Computed example of a mutant assay.
Amino acid sequence: MPERLLAPEGTSADIGEFTHAGATVIHEDFGSGPHPIVLVHGIGMGRSVYLDLTTHLDGRIIGLDLPGFGEAPEPPRTLTMERHADLVAAYLRSRGISDAVIVGHSMGSQIAAEVAVRHPDVVSALVLAGPTVNSASRSIRAQAGYLLWDLLHERPVVLWRGAREYLRGGPNLVRKMRATIVHRPENAYPRVRVPVLVVRGQRDPLAPMKWCREILDMVPDARFAEIPDHGHGTLISDSGGAADTILDFVRSL
Rank of each mutant, 00 (worst) to 15 (best):
E9H: 09
A13E: 11
D14V: 02
F18N: 04
F18K: 11
A21N: 15
A21M: 07
A21L: 13
A23P: 13
I26E: 14
F30A: 11
P34W: 03
V38S: 06
H41C: 12
G42M: 14
Y50V: 01
T54H: 08
L64P: 10
D65R: 04
F69M: 15
G70R: 04
P73N: 11
R83T: 05
R83C: 01
S94T: 06
S94P: 05
I97C: 06
A100D: 02
I102D: 01
M107R: 13
Q110I: 08
A116V: 06
V117A: 14
H119E: 08
H119W: 08
H119G: 06
S124H: 12
L126R: 07
A129W: 01
T132H: 02
V133Q: 09
V133W: 13
A136R: 15
L147T: 12
E165Q: 11
Y166G: 00
L167M: 11
L167Q: 01
P171R: 05
T180A: 05
T180G: 05
V182Q: 10
N187K: 13
A188R: 03
A188Y: 04
V194L: 05
L197I: 05
V198I: 06
L206F: 00
R213F: 02
E214G: 04
E226G: 00
G241R: 15
A243F: 10
T245G: 11
L247M: 15
